[in-house]
Simulated assay, not measured.
Amino acid sequence: MAHTITGKKKLLARVRRIKGQAEALERALSGEAECTAVLQQIAAVRGAVNGLMAEVLEGHIREHLGPDAVEPAQRDEDLAAVVAALRSYLR
């Protein structure tokens, strides 16, 4: 996946922010924070993960499914993989 290699630094920075948000959520739960603070932190983590998913998915679609990107048989395989990933993610 060349698109994840070229954007590796930016993607890893996103993952590190998500890790920090998840750790903040853990601290909030351990510290018995107010429900609203916990809910807000959960929403922040979810938004960050959704943003990461959208960025990686967009890169994959542009590189593997764009016009004349690959042969038709490979395109079908890549499309099936994207659909499977989306179905899993949206459960």
Rank of each mutant, 00 (worst) to 15 (best):
M1A: 11
A2P: 03
H3K: 00
H3Q: 04
H3W: 06
T4S: 06
I5F: 09
I5D: 08
T6K: 02
T6N: 10
T6V: 11
G7L: 11
G7R: 08
K10H: 01
L11R: 02
L12S: 01
A13M: 06
A13Y: 00
R14G: 09
R14Y: 06
V15F: 11
R16C: 13
R16T: 15
R16Y: 08
R16E: 09
R16W: 14
R17P: 00
R17L: 11
R17V: 13
I18F: 10
K19W: 01
K19E: 13
K19F: 11
G20I: 02
G20A: 07
G20N: 05
Q21W: 02
Q21R: 12
A22H: 06
A22P: 00
E23H: 13
E23N: 13
A24V: 07
A24P: 01
L25F: 04
L25H: 01
E26L: 13
E26S: 13
R27W: 08
R27K: 14
R27M: 10
R27C: 01
A28P: 00
A28M: 10
L29Q: 14
L29I: 15
S30P: 08
S30K: 08
G31C: 05
G31Q: 03
G31F: 05
E32I: 06
A33H: 05
C35L: 05
A37M: 02
A37N: 12
V38T: 01
L39N: 03
L39I: 13
L39G: 01
L39Y: 03
L39Q: 09
Q40W: 07
Q40D: 13
Q41V: 00
Q41C: 08
Q41W: 00
I42G: 01
I42W: 01
A43F: 01
A43T: 06
A44V: 10
V45H: 02
V45A: 07
V45R: 03
R46K: 11
G47Q: 07
A48W: 12
A48S: 15
V49Y: 04
N50W: 09
G51Q: 10
G51Y: 05
L52N: 00
A54K: 15
A54I: 10
A54V: 10
A54T: 12
E55T: 14
E55Y: 10
E55G: 04
V56M: 12
L57Q: 14
L57Y: 14
L57K: 15
E58L: 10
E58V: 05
G59T: 06
H60L: 01
H60G: 10
I61Y: 05
R62G: 00
R62L: 08
E63A: 08
E63V: 09
E63Y: 05
H64C: 14
L65V: 03
G66T: 00
G66L: 06
P67Q: 15
P67E: 15
P67N: 12
D68M: 14
D68P: 04
A69V: 06
A69Q: 11
V70E: 03
V70N: 11
E71S: 08
P72V: 03
A73E: 15
Q74W: 00
Q74D: 07
R75A: 12
R75T: 03
D76A: 15
D78N: 13
D78E: 15
A80N: 01
A80I: 03
A80P: 01
A80R: 10
A80E: 10
A81C: 02
V82Y: 05
V82G: 05
V83P: 07
A84T: 03
A84S: 10
A85H: 06
L86N: 02
R87W: 10
S88D: 12
Y89D: 02
Y89A: 12
L90S: 11
L90D: 10
